[in-house]
């Protein structure tokens, strides 16, 4: 009896230790975010106040107002939304069809093609900067949002392709065949059966692509030099460093607004990330 109680006590202690560790980690990660939010809401004078205040003494939305009405920030924001959304859609469509083709159809070189695509990740992004720039230039796509979408797609697509490939590999072909016997065309079988089952994978790949293109700095900086095609990361930094001193409060406000879409996307999609439909549909 006492043995069992000791065991239960030990289990509870372990649980508390695990919880404490988790929260410590969360705090460490979240601290800069709190600082960012705090700074964006302080009057500029309070930014460097001593002792520093984590929670602003005076809350002001002045920086957000400045950002939205007196800078090109809204243009950059819109550009980023277009580029990230466009990239995500393109990546998902291309990699879903590609993964399906690689898994379900037989043709010469399909394995090699799938493997070659991963070579993108063997080279640092800087190395591909010039070749990609030249390609886009010859297509007349420098300084355009479409150019950036294409460039980002080449980065996000391989990961997405391989992720979705593993999802489709795990799907029994019986299901598509059953759908076809039940009266579906091949395309309908794909849409009715494959896509819903690949949904957790599609969402993971979509988040990956969105975040990658939302945060990308280097290519955006080099490819799109004109103000009306700039995206947020290079846009915000160049905008706030035109003066000799950095506008910290504005930068923090911009950072907060940049983080919002990503947080929203996570909150809405997280549920699907963890819930696959799982096995059990097909026996034997």
């Amino acid at each position: 009896m006492s043995g069992r109680r000791a065991l239960r006590l030990r289990r509870r202690l372990l649980r508390v230790a695990a919880d404490l560790t988790t929260w410590a980690l969360v705090l460490a990660v979240a601290f800069p975010l709190f600082w960012m939010l705090g700074t964006s809401l302080k009057p500029s004078a309070e930014t460097f106040a001593l002792p520093p205040t984590l929670i602003p003494a005076h809350v002001t939305f002045e920086h957000f107002r400045t950002l939205l009405f007196e800078t090109p920030f809204p243009t950059y924001f819109l550009n980023s939304v277009i580029v990230a959304t466009g990239t995500t859609l393109l990546v998902i469509v291309v990699s879903l069809l590609g993964a399906y083709s690689v898994v379900r159809f037989r043709y010469r070189g399909r394995r090699l093609a799938a493997q070659m695509v991963l070579f993108t990740y063997l080279l640092p992004a800087v190395v591909l900067l010039l070749p990609l720039y030249l390609i886009l230039a010859s297509l007349g796509l420098v300084n355009s949002l479409l150019g950036l979408i294409l460039a980002y797609t080449t980065f996000a697509m391989p990961f997405s392709l391989w992720l979705l490939r593993s999802f489709i590999l795990a799907m029994p072909i019986d299901l598509e065949e059953a759908a076809m016997v039940d009266g579906a065309s091949r395309v309908e079988a794909f849409l009715d059966v494959v896509v819903p089952q690949a949904l957790p994978g599609i969402i993971s790949a979509a988040l990956f692509s969105f975040i990658l293109s939302w945060n990308e700095y280097l290519y955006a900086l080099v490819f799109n030099r004109q103000d009306h095609t700039k995206t947020l990361p290079p846009g915000v930094i160049t905008m706030l460093q035109q003066n000799t001193n950095t506008e910290w409060s504005l930068l923090m406000a911009a950072s907060v607004m940049m983080a919002v879409p990503v947080i929203v996307a996570f909150v809405f999609l997280q549920r699907h990330l963890t819930s696959g439909f799982g096995a059990g549909a097909v026996k034997g």
Binding site: A178, A179, V181, D182, Q197, G280, G284
Partner: peptide, 12 residues
Amino acid sequence: AMVFQSYALYPH
């Protein structure tokens, strides 16, 4: 109509 050995029920 076909009944598959695996049943092939649509899991979703």
